[in-house]
């Protein structure tokens, strides 16, 4: 999205604190927005990291015991948290939510243009998906902003293909996207070298997938 001229700010809310690796953030740098938010800091940008390729990233930082309290605070007043993040009105704010924390989904779904639920075809996905749908009562209706998207598509692997087909068969068309991200070793190798996939290998198919996904998200959000 950045390459297509859109202002983007990414925020990691996952306690694994892994997203920073994609932005080339040094491992020694342990601070993040969580502590600042809990300490009622004025500007979230004080905790931002500028990547080599010009992206603004807000790492969670090491929070340990305070994580539940952080989630409670966001859950109690999501609007205040979003205000604090203060992204530019014309820009995009991308929030990486933890996969194990469905409460945040409930808290934020009313306030976002798009909620992408990323899944990958492997044996655990089917029961987890069933559980998620049941807990979130999605059978009774899915918010318009909510969509499932498939990652790591590998039709050359029989198991991956079969599971993918089953999940697509189970999910209604209006809650899935036409876009998917193919499984590509380039992505892992790019991460290992702390580069973006574009920088690592311009010919990688992942680049085309990400470009398509970025265009689609921008179009979808501009229509929202």
């Amino acid at each position: 999205m950045l390459r297509q001229g859109t202002k983007v700010r990414s925020i990691d809310v996952c306690s694994h604190n892994d997203l920073r690796l994609w932005y080339g953030m040094p491992l020694q740098q342990t601070g993040g927005w969580a502590q600042g938010f809990m300490d009622n800091a004025q500007d979230s940008l004080d905790f931002a990291f500028q990547s080599d390729f010009g992206a603004t990233f807000l790492p969670l930082g090491e929070v340990n015991e305070g994580y539940q309290a952080l989630l409670n605070r966001i859950e109690s007043d999501p609007v205040a948290w979003l205000e604090w993040l203060k992204h530019e009105p014309e820009g995009m704010l991308i929030i990486n939510l933890p996969s194990h924390c469905e409460r945040l989904y409930k808290a934020l779904i009313q306030h976002v243009d798009l909620h992408l639920c990323v899944w990958q075809a492997e044996p655990r996905v089917y029961p987890r998906l069933q559980q998620f749908i049941k807990r979130q009562q999605l059978n009774d209706g899915v918010p318009e902003a909510f969509l499932f998207i498939e990652n790591g598509v590998a039709p050359q692997l029989e198991l991956n293909r079969d599971i993918s087909n089953i999940i697509h068969h189970e999910l209604a068309d209006d809650v899935t996207t036409d876009i998917s991200i193919m499984r590509d070793q380039h992505i892992a190798e790019a991460l290992a070298t702390q580069q973006s996939c574009y920088e690592y290998s311009i010919a990688a198919s992942a680049n085309a997938d990400f470009t398509e996904l970025a265009s689609w998200i921008m179009k979808r959000c501009s229509n929202a």
Partner: peptide
């Protein structure tokens, strides 16, 4: 997709 699982468009 190559045997090393590198994927190209």
């Amino acid at each position: 997709v190559t045997n090393s699982e590198h994927s190209f468009s």
